[in-house]
Design a protein around this nucleic acid. Structure first.
Lengths: 344, 344
DNA sequence: CTCGTAGATGGAAGCGCTCCCACATTTGTG
DNA sequence: CACAAATGTGGGAGCGCTTCCATCTACGAG
């Protein structure tokens, strides 16, 4: 007999040692450590003591090898990291997720899948079932994450309606169409007759839906819906879009912007051009995650309760992780609300 | 014999099945899958084919149970999540880390340990060795992460010099003292005689070092170093600090700010107060991670190559993970550079 | 006083994988 | 052509944990 590969003396103490020290069997020790069902008070305290004196921590690999759970879920963000770390949308989302995860003992793994390069890696990670489930936020048309996830059968929930997947995929979303329609109607109601929009990226459902909402309101009001420009939800893109929009349509007296960040950029351009907001041109944003309060003038906007959405999505995901084939309600639609401030 | 707990038919295919299909032993299949040392071309391709047809993916729990590696590292950020997601410092850091990790097949687990509540959770996660190593960025005096990590013997590297830990802890940092001294000297050189500073949080070494650099330069120039105000590196705190600083010392003609974000806030306040920058008061920031170019006027600042620092730190960490007891150089100090723009 | 039952316990069988080691086969060398 | 060295292969022993199941104890009811 040669020396064992890993000398028992080194490294972390194992459950075996805990059991020995506590004077119980490994089975009992295991029970005592995991909730203590069917364990006598004596055994329980013996194990507790042993755990403490030995500084025992369970080996998660061994545990999940048998439980087939990892007690962690992934948040997948298919966005370039500079957007992830500048848009308050993600901060809010993460906050909601961690709040729910804190209630149970589940870890969050943030998967930044910047388009292109790393999506294969991300997918492999998920396929390997490093996590029990996935929450996908900010989904783009091309990344086909919905299909892939359905294929590998990993429980998942989308933040925002995904493009495809039909009834197979669960998601939490707000009613973007109604939200943007309402925003537009607010401009119309205050007398705007020439209303343009800065829409989001055409490969995201939230952006498309908001654009549709704007169109609906415009057509109902009998106004032309030709003043459209697309951005990518960033402040810089909002500036660019506003600039080209005002150049093409100098007569605009209203502007519906699909995100507050883009609206902030637009406000800056309008100020530069000497247009007074809201007198010369009224502006509404979308999101209300902090920036809207800090612009000058403060932004009238459509509030999206991101924290709450993330919370709901996470709960939905955990339910699906706990019972993979339950046929619970799979989607949650939250109504947005218009928040009136100075810009419109 | 009853039905096995997990029917072999269900779930993922195992290495056993791959081996059977490929007509080799499990040992050979394993070798073929992991790099293919000592595997004949025939066996290799048989295994490859089997893997593909079966859609086999290795079970990471089983693997790391025996290898004692998880092939993932943690990035620990002891900050409230709203700061993490608004300061470009973290975006840059994550970018550097992922770049290095992409070269090897190592996953990143982002641990947001907002002070208080979740630090115990975070510590437990690390203690359980869910990861092979940890990179700690933005370390505060109180969170004693350095000691804890040293105690549990997890390989780790700090981004920014930690408060304690002496020689036991590895870190990557810039020379904050020299950087801020140089920034201050630039103001002195352009003729400022009354220079204040907005320092960072007193419980962070980077903030303290920058403050020390400012003091050094002030004392060398024979100027009073009484105009000090502390912020927490956020834009809002920069505004507040600037306001109270200008109130207490209306005669300031120079302002050294420990971060660009705070400087941006200060610039806004100065504009509000009608002070022209740099004519009435010159301002220098710290970081140069994008915001400095976008302020009005553009900010003269001390460049901190965050990406590169993160990269170096990650490489250092991986080295330590690979050979835990090597006595390689443990710290890297990168020289900062002054970037001159309009504000000073 | 016996029996049924619920609670507590430990033995043992794996979970899916890697890697040591012994053995078989090929290749190289004088 | 003999023998050594290199190369390829499979058997099998775990890694540390959970959980099934059989067993044992204690206790109140009949």
């Amino acid at each position: 007999m040669t020396t064992p590969r890993t000398p028992a003396s080194a490294g972390q103490p194992t459950l075996d040692e805990v059991a020995r020290v506590a004077g119980v069997s490994r089975a009992t020790a295991s029970r005592a450590i995991n909730g203590g069902q069917r364990v006598s008070a004596r055994a329980q305290s013996a194990v507790d003591t042993a755990v403490r004196t030995l500084g025992y921590v369970p080996n998660p690999a061994a545990r999940s090898l048998v439980t087939r759970r990892t007690d962690s879920i992934a948040v997948v963000v298919p966005e370039p990291d500079d957007r992830v770390f500048s848009d308050p949308f993600f901060a809010g989302t993460l906050r909601g997720v961690t709040r729910v995860l804190g209630e149970r003992d589940i870890q969050l793994v943030l998967l930044l899948a910047r388009p292109g390069a790393s999506t294969a890696r991300t997918l492999r990670y998920l396929t390997n079932r490093h996590v029990d489930g996935a929450l996908v936020v900010s989904h783009h048309r091309d990344d086909r994450l919905a299909e892939h996830l359905a294929d590998i059968g990993l429980p998942c929930v989308f933040g925002g309606r995904p493009w495809t997947g039909g009834d197979r995929v669960a998601y939490v979303d707000i009613d973007n169409v109604a939200g943007e329609r309402e925003a537009t109607e607010a401009l119309v109601a205050r007398g705007c007759t020439r209303v343009g929009t800065i829409a989001g990226p055409a490969d995201m459902t939230a952006a498309e839906d908001r654009l549709a909402g704007w169109r609906q309101a415009m057509s109902r009001a009998g106004l032309a819906d030709d003043a459209v420009e697309h951005g990518d939800f960033t402040e810089a893109s909002g500036e660019a879009a506003a600039r080209s929009l005002m150049e093409r349509h100098p007569d605009l007296d209203g502007l519906v912007v699909a995100s507050d960040l883009m609206a902030a950029g637009a406000l800056r351009v309008l100020a530069e051009l000497g247009r007074r907001v809201p007198d010369d041109i009224a502006v509404v944003g979308f999101d209300d995650l902090g920036v809207a309060e800090r612009t000058t003038p403060a932004l009238t906007t459509v509030r999206q309760p991101v924290d709450e959405m993330a919370e709901r999505a996470t709960r939905l995901l955990l339910e699906r992780v706990d019972e993979p084939d339950s046929s619970r309600p799979m989607r949650v639609i939250i109504p947005p609300t218009l928040v009136r401030r100075a810009s419109a």
